[in-house]
């Protein structure tokens, strides 16, 4: 399984990877990108099963990243992990084709729940 983690914070990418392992994805191949533009470049060349992305990032936001992915025909399961958690952000995420929006801070349980639904 190929999972792409996109966040401009190296520390948060590390935390997401740690939670992925705790959530049962220890054997997954985890790729990383620091913004949406870098994530899009990886998505064009790698067969991804799941993308976990921050919302606010330089170069290309998570929402723009998702919109670009979908406009290029990529249907990869996509989840936001972000501190933006108001209903309007959730609505925008779902309208753009996200499977879920997980609010930071997250714990292992909420992380597992979101991923479980998205990858069922």
């Amino acid at each position: 399984m190929n999972i792409l983690v996109v966040d401009d914070s190296k520390t948060i990418r590390m935390l997401v990877k740690r939670n992925l392992k705790q959530a049962g994805f220890a054997d997954a191949n985890i790729l990383e990108a620091e913004d949406g533009a870098a994530g899009l470049a990886i998505a064009r060349t790698e067969a991804l099963d799941l993308i976990l992305s921050d919302w606010n990032m330089p170069e290309m936001s998570g929402l723009e990243f998702l919109q670009n992915l979908r406009s290029e025909g990529f249907g990869t399961t996509f989840g936001f992990i972000t501190s933006e958690s108001t209903p309007s952000y959730k609505d925008q995420a779902m309208a753009a084709g996200a499977a879920f929006l997980l609010s930071k801070p997250f714990n292992a349980e909420s992380f597992s729940d979101a991923l479980g639904v998205a990858t069922a």
Binding site: S9, T86, S103
Partner: peptide, 24 residues
């Protein structure tokens, strides 16, 4: 400091509600 910046980034969720101006 960079790590604390991320703590502050996530703490934006404490400040943002559906009824208040959006803060980043």
């Amino acid at each position: 400091l960079e790590n604390f910046r991320e703590v502050c980034n996530v703490a934006a969720s404490l400040l943002n509600t559906p009824h208040t101006p959006h803060l980043t």
